[in-house]
Design a protein around this nucleic acid. Structure first.
Lengths: 123, 123
DNA sequence: TCAATGTAATACGGTTCCGTAACGAATGAG
DNA sequence: CTCATTCGTTACGGAACCGTATTACATTGA
């Protein structure tokens, strides 16, 4: 499962899907938040603040703030680790899973639509 | 030129490339700014504030601010339209073209790397 | 000439994010 | 028990973004 994209395909896909993302989802998520959200939903748990900060190369408050925002949107959930109560484990939610699925649909749809670059107004 | 992605491919690519984007480029660009930038560099000119606002479904001040920020980074350039001096035409820059190219490289590289999800630390 | 329209920019109050620094809570070694 | 370490959060000042409303300028047409 390896994708061999040509430059026009890679950028064309990014172009179309990002536009659609802005139109459908709006400005609520930053690039960092998207990266964090996808990692939580696609990589194997457990996920901690410290681990996510190291993964993205950012400071811990960045993760804390992103979890605040996305938690408020219902996309993720914080649970205190009972084995080591200093840790917080980030859990998935049904709403977050639906969100990620929707994002995947946008990417797939825009990938299929790549042949017609001028038809980006429908739906 | 149409891409038929499976859900795991679409989200896996988004996951890897977004993570790498955050790591390499940092927090300077919002999703809206990325969408605007890619449209300027991939869609046929001319590009105007009004046109971009309609394309993304946002108000014109959003575009004005994004052009301020990206212009300050050297990624785009504003030129007054001499035929109708109410209009501003957004022009590409060498620095912006290099930036878009770099983003394309990230996407292509992460697409090729999709088979090994645990090896996202090199380069 | 002068009013009406169109375009982009600016002003405003509010919210969020940024990085650095400081902070409490929990753990574990001595 | 004491104290250094680790973890996540909060505080702070500064910057950017948000949407709405307003402004300045150019163009159009009566």
């Amino acid at each position: 499962m390896s994708l061999d994209l040509r430059p026009s395909e890679a950028l064309g896909l990014w172009h179309a899907a990002t536009l659609e993302h802005v139109r459908v989802i709006g400005p609520d998520l930053t690039i960092r938040q998207v990266a964090i959200l996808l990692h939580i939903y696609l990589a194997a748990p457990p996920h901690t603040v410290r681990g996510l900060a190291a993964l993205l190369g950012v400071t811990k408050p960045v993760i804390t703030r992103a979890l605040d925002t996305m938690g408020h949107m219902g996309l993720v959930r914080r649970v205190r680790d009972e084995r080591d109560r200093r840790n917080v484990v980030i859990k998935r939610t049904v709403e977050g899973a639906l969100f990620v699925e929707k994002l995947g649909d946008i990417i797939i749809l825009e990938g299929r639509r790549l042949a017609a670059p001028e038809d980006s107004q429908s739906s």
